[in-house]
Simulated scan of single mutants.
Amino acid sequence: MRKEWYVLQAYSGMENKVKELLEEKYRMLGFAHFFGKIIVPEIEELDYSNKKVEKVFVNNDSKVFTKKGKDIKKGDVIAKEADFFAKENGIITSLKNFRRIIIETKGKKYSTTYLIPENAGILAGLRVGKDVKAGMPFTKDASFECEVDGEIGAIEKVKKVIIDNSLGEKDVYIVPRSNFDSKVFRNGTEISKGEKLAEGKEFKAKSSGRVDVRETAMRKEIRIIKTSRKKLFPGYIFIEMMHVKEAENLVKSIPYVSTFLNVGGKPIRLKRNEIRALLRLIGEEDYEDKKDKTEIRIDYEIGEHVKIINGPFEFFTGKIKNIDLDKHEVNVSVSMFGRETDVELGLSEIEKIVE
């Protein structure tokens, strides 16, 4: 007899305990041959709240060691800025410490950078993620003020190095203070063209999460978004098993089990496309991503029935519940094992059903 997939209903929050007890009991009774995989489907959920998002700003010429969508661990190197080299021969005429503060406007569309002398009396309490308003002071004497509404994206300690070069011009360098050797480079130090003034700053992840990279005309913004495990179907356990009396009675004897998902008392056997979609969602079955091969249409309507042509739910049909044209995303309700399930899809993953 072949093993088929069934859905077991259990007390919410006890799904993993039921799985553990079931696996322990069928091994003890010698019934392991009746069972295959037992799955409590979970996915990683991204947390975009300000406290959960780590942000790093780097210049466009920086080397980035990760990419969008990649998972990284705390301590991994994210990026390294280019080293700083003297453009011409010259003499250092000024070395001053500054604080560089980057303010992101609401909606994250624009950012403004402020260079504030360290001796200006910078206010305590300024931190990444803090909301700011136009006119809010950065220093105790209010000599430096914020010019836009937004939030603080980065605060960095830097050194401003001015070199009077051999062409009669002033070259200005803003270098990371931690990488500048003040014992080697002082006021009056002669500098040769091409001489390294400081190593570029290396950025390491302060937390584990998933990477998002956004590029602007001036710099790259690298975000690390923390993730958490979320049950896809709370109260449901998916079991691959032979539907024989011994196996069914064993399952029903496990604490915290309610019943099999059934019709008229007969357990519902999952269709092959339903379990395939589930396995793809949790990463246990690979599938070809055909997003780039599909023309994107935008003439969809809420309530319209569509066919899913890519991703875990390929070959399913469903009804559009919401459309976000800015993100090129839709929310589609599909029927799985007798219940409606909402899934987020890209516009390139669906197509119209031709009557």
Rank of each mutant, 00 (worst) to 15 (best):
P117Y: 15
M136E: 15
K204R: 12
P312K: 12
K130M: 09
G209V: 05
E118W: 13
D326T: 02
R2C: 03
D292Q: 10
N310H: 13
D212A: 10
V77M: 09
S207V: 06
A124I: 14
K201L: 03
S228C: 01
K133V: 06
G107S: 03
F185S: 08
S192I: 08
F84D: 03
K108L: 14
S253M: 11
S192H: 08
I298Q: 09
F84A: 02
L197W: 14
A217E: 12
I78R: 01
I225P: 07
V251Y: 10
R99D: 01
G188Q: 07
M28R: 13
E344D: 11
E284W: 15
M28V: 10
N179Y: 09
E151W: 06
D76M: 04
M218H: 04
I72F: 15
V158K: 07
K25R: 13
K87T: 12
E288L: 14
I308Q: 05
P137F: 07
C146F: 11
K291Q: 03
F233A: 02
F180G: 04
E304D: 10
A32P: 03
R100V: 11
V172A: 10
S111D: 03
K157T: 10
Y110E: 05
I116M: 07
Y300L: 06
I155E: 08
D292H: 14
N50Y: 13
G129Y: 02
I353S: 03
F84K: 05
T317F: 11
F185E: 11
V354D: 14
T112C: 01
K159R: 07
S192P: 04
F57Q: 03
R99H: 01
A124S: 15
N187S: 09
L123R: 14
V77I: 14
D171Y: 10
R223P: 00
K17S: 13
